[in-house]
Amino acid sequence: MTDERIVVVGAGYAGLATATRAGRHREVTLIAPEERFLHRVRQHETAAGRPEHRPALADLVRGSRVTRVPAEVTAIDLAARTLHTDTAGPVPYDVLVYALGSRTAFHGVPGAAEHSYPAERAAALHRRLAASLGPASLAVVGGGATGIEMAAELAEAHPEHRVRLLAADRVGGWLSARGQRHVRRALHRLGVTIDDGRTVTAVTPGGLETDRGPVPADAVVWAASMEPHPLAAEAGLDVTAGGQVVVDDHLRSVSHPEVYAVGDAAAVTLPGRGALRMGCATALPMGTYLGRVLGGRAPRPFAFSYAAQCLSLGRRDGLLQLVRADDSMRPLVLTGTPGRLVKAAIVRAVTPRS
């Protein structure tokens, strides 16, 4: 039906991709409080004081039939098919695209939310470091991609500071053996102290408490993991134990077929691929697919194959790790300047446009 009211909630990678592509052919309402797109995969650059790349949402939807409502959704009434917002009043829908994504998870660690800087507070972290009168000690918690990129960027931008990267397991441990070696060499070259196998039990104003003793730090960066936004569970959609919306092979909610979920908000499991991981690598294809479906393309089941993972290791180094279709590691990696250039090209390409 061409007169269906299509409403997209969330203007991240998946939400914008859905809205702009569906908006080529249909009227779409996009609800998002922010004026500018948050390039989550570039937050390490923001933390280090690099120029921000945050295009205006108005520019990204220009030329499409997307109307943006600058508001935050506070509740979803599934029975009435109505969204409640903080500033725009109730918004009815016939088709809802839930794309609120994820946020940093603190996992109940005492003091983590109060005394650390997650990726969402990258600009505040930059201001904190800029105000430092002398060398400072920085503790980055999390040995995944976000933690590695944060540690590398901060160490390169602020060589006067001491950067320590802590992980409960092994920093970069999911990569191939060659990929791990390169990441660790790059971090050592930048002066980052790698602390594997250390579990953080609390964050204090003076640093960290861990299972192997205290770690003093003037500032703590929290990059341990992500969790879905809780609104879907609060509304009564069927969700996984982790809070992601359970969807079918067309990204439609199994409990409420008028609702679709995309990006980090969706629990997508594909044959031969398993459960898709959170990240723009999966969010953007989901949004592109759903935008085409809502725009009128015949709905085929969503399909996806992994090809590579990439990491920024400062301004002069990077890593492109080739992977199989199921995201398992291949031995081949691209490093140094070639790896950095490919990573930069991928980052430039993932901004959704109409």
Rank of each mutant, 00 (worst) to 15 (best):
245 V>I: 06
21 R>E: 12
141 V>G: 09
284 L>C: 00
49 G>Y: 06
25 H>D: 11
226 M>L: 15
141 V>Q: 09
112 A>S: 07
259 V>R: 12
283 A>D: 05
277 R>Q: 12
129 L>W: 04
277 R>K: 15
107 H>I: 04
70 P>Y: 10
154 L>A: 02
60 L>Y: 03
50 R>S: 12
319 L>W: 07
207 G>W: 01
123 A>H: 14
263 G>K: 03
140 V>P: 03
38 L>F: 14
246 V>P: 06
209 E>S: 14
279 G>L: 00
109 V>P: 05
223 A>T: 08
56 A>W: 13
328 S>L: 03
321 Q>F: 07
22 A>R: 07
156 E>K: 11
298 A>G: 12
55 P>I: 05
328 S>N: 03
100 L>F: 07
17 A>H: 05
146 T>W: 02
288 T>K: 14
212 R>A: 15
350 V>H: 08
55 P>G: 06
112 A>E: 08
180 Q>K: 13
89 G>L: 05
318 G>Q: 10
8 V>W: 09
78 L>H: 03
350 V>T: 14
175 L>Q: 02
344 A>V: 11
205 P>F: 11
55 P>L: 01
214 P>A: 02
332 L>H: 11
275 A>P: 14
83 L>R: 01
102 S>A: 15
8 V>D: 03
232 A>H: 09
143 G>K: 09
346 I>G: 06
90 P>I: 00
297 R>Y: 08
246 V>I: 11
187 L>R: 00
38 L>W: 13
301 P>L: 05
291 G>V: 04
183 V>C: 04
194 I>W: 08
67 T>H: 14
92 P>A: 09
169 D>E: 15
121 R>E: 00
184 R>T: 08
36 R>P: 00
105 A>D: 14
70 P>C: 11
138 L>S: 03
193 T>H: 11
293 V>G: 00
157 A>D: 01
67 T>D: 09
135 P>Q: 13
311 L>A: 09
255 S>H: 04
16 L>F: 02
236 G>D: 01
141 V>M: 07
112 A>W: 08
278 M>I: 12
229 H>P: 06
153 E>A: 15
40 R>I: 14
4 E>F: 05
187 L>M: 05
263 G>S: 04
156 E>H: 09
134 G>D: 15
16 L>N: 09
236 G>H: 05
267 A>T: 00
240 T>Q: 05
115 H>N: 13
21 R>A: 09
271 P>D: 10
94 D>H: 11
163 V>P: 03
225 S>K: 05
300 R>V: 14
270 L>K: 06
191 G>L: 03
164 R>Q: 14
280 C>G: 06
78 L>M: 01
273 R>G: 01
47 A>N: 04
161 H>L: 10
115 H>R: 13
247 V>P: 05
72 E>K: 15
160 E>I: 01
147 G>V: 09
335 T>W: 03
68 R>F: 02
143 G>N: 08
234 E>Y: 02
248 D>P: 07
176 S>W: 03
